Structure formats: C-alpha cells, structure tokens
Amino acid sequence: MTDTTPMIRLRGVTKRYGEGATAFLALKGVDLDIQRGEFVAIMGPSGSGKSTAMNTLGCLDRPTGGEYLFMGAHVESLSRDERARIRRRYFGFVFQGFNLLARTSAQENVELPLLYRGEPAGRRHAAAAKALESVGLKGWEHHTPAELSGGQQQRVAIARAIVTEPAVLLADEPTGNLDTRRSHEIMELLSRLNSEEGITVLMVTHESEMAAYAHRIVRFVDGQVASDVLNSEPTQPGSFTPAGSMEAG
C-alpha cells in the first residue's frame, strides 16, 4: 500500500433500516476517503447519518450497499466475527458517557481490552499504567470513577481506548458531558495523540468549537456528505484561555 492510498475508503455506501414501507435509508451513497494520521471531525444535525457513518467506519455495523475498504480489505463482505477481529486490532472507541465500570479502579478499567485479549497480568498492568500516564493520570491508577471528575473519567476512557495501540480512534461526542474547560482539555489530548502518536482520529461532534481542532470537517445532511473541507488553521493545544481569572478546582 502506497502512502497515497487512503486508510479508509467509502464508495457509494448505503445503510437501510427496516423493510418495505417502514424502511429508512440512513446513508444514501456516501463517498469518503480518510488518510492515515488525519484528524477528522464529522458533524451534522440529528438524523443526518453521522452516527450511522461512525458505526460503519468502526466496523460496528455493516453497510447495506456500496464498498468499505479498510487498509485494502473489503469490510462490507466480512462476517461479524471478522469485523470484530478488525475492531479489536485496529480501533479504539471513546463515547460521550465514558462507560466505565463504577466499582473498578482506573487501572482495571483501562486493562479491560487487554483482559479480553488474554494478555498476561504483567503486560496488562504495564500497558495500562503507560496509557494512564499518557493521558495525564499518573498517580490516579487506583481511584474509582466516583473519585474522579468528569474530565478525568473521560481521560480514563481514552486511556482504555488507546491501551491496545489502535491505528484509529473513534470518538463519539467525547465532550458532550463536560463543561467548556474540560472539553478543551479532552480536545487537546486528542490533538496530541494524533500529532505525537500518529493515531488517526475520527470524531463525531455537534460543537463547532470542538470540531475546530480537527484537520478536516465533514458535514452530513440527510444521509449524505454535504461538505468536506480542510481546516487550514486547526486550534492548537494550549491556545484555550478560560474566561475569568479564577482557576477551576
């Protein structure tokens, strides 16, 4: 595969839910290329197809029609188990609701994907500690979610997503449950993971201020790509200044 070959390529992708008169076409012939190492924000109003597109890109769902090539493999023709193997090997997922186990420490939450892989305890512990340090939570390994702020919980969720060293990080409204300051902290973290670790980041968001961190902004309307534009001046980590002079606790 050459450097100019997209890591992800959608061609004429459709997704239909239901049959007959009740059928709903959520995606209507989507074409989209994503290169390795990009940071792409996916936007659009409710019902526009952006979340369906994200589920398709993450191999969580299979398109009804069209082609989805991931690193040259035709995902649309793969079985459920084959798609699951691609997800486990290449993708990390971050969601709006954090999805952490409540009575489990940050360290143990981050180790979960490695536990499912059957990794030995020593390797799990080391990898989780490294991932937590990379998101700025060194020293918080033994705290439960109830002992962490919302921003810290999302950092744990991101650490869990990157502990397997994925090629692609899919973030679905990762700042939706956070205040402005914590939202920018999470966006700066995603930006650094993209620029410093080379992780391809695909993020669904409805907030233009968060999308401004991305290199490209793709807008969906009525199940189709309405626009796909480069962001010539993405927001840089460290540029956010909180309103007022008081620091949050």
Rank of each mutant, 00 (worst) to 15 (best):
R123L: 10
R155K: 10
R155M: 09
Q154V: 10
E165R: 15
G122N: 11
T144Q: 09
A127C: 05
G136F: 04
S191P: 01
E196Y: 03
P174F: 12
N194L: 07
A146C: 07
T164D: 04
R181N: 13
S191K: 10
S183K: 04
A161R: 06
R182C: 10
G122T: 08
L148D: 00
E165H: 14
A128C: 06
A159D: 02
E173A: 04
S134P: 02
A171D: 00
G136M: 07
G139P: 05
A131Y: 00
L170C: 05
I199C: 05
H184K: 12
L132K: 03
E141I: 02
I158A: 09
A131D: 01
A129Y: 00
V168F: 02
L190C: 07
T180V: 08
E141L: 07
A129I: 07
R160A: 15
A161P: 04
Q153M: 15
L169S: 07
S134E: 08
G139F: 11
S191Y: 00
L178P: 00
D172V: 06
G139Y: 08
R123D: 13
E188S: 12
T164F: 03
K130V: 14
H143V: 05
D179K: 09
L148A: 01
K138M: 09
E173S: 09
R192T: 14
W140T: 07
T164N: 13
I162G: 01
N177G: 08
T144R: 13
A126T: 04
G176C: 05
L190T: 03
I199H: 01
A127G: 03
L132S: 01
R160W: 07
V156E: 00
E133A: 15
A157K: 02
S149T: 06
L132P: 05
P174C: 15
L189V: 05
A161N: 06
A159P: 04
D172Y: 10
R123C: 05
G151A: 11
S191M: 03
S195H: 09
A146M: 11
E197C: 12
E165Q: 14
V163P: 01
G198P: 08
A161E: 02
H125V: 07
A129T: 12
K138P: 04
G198E: 10
R160G: 13
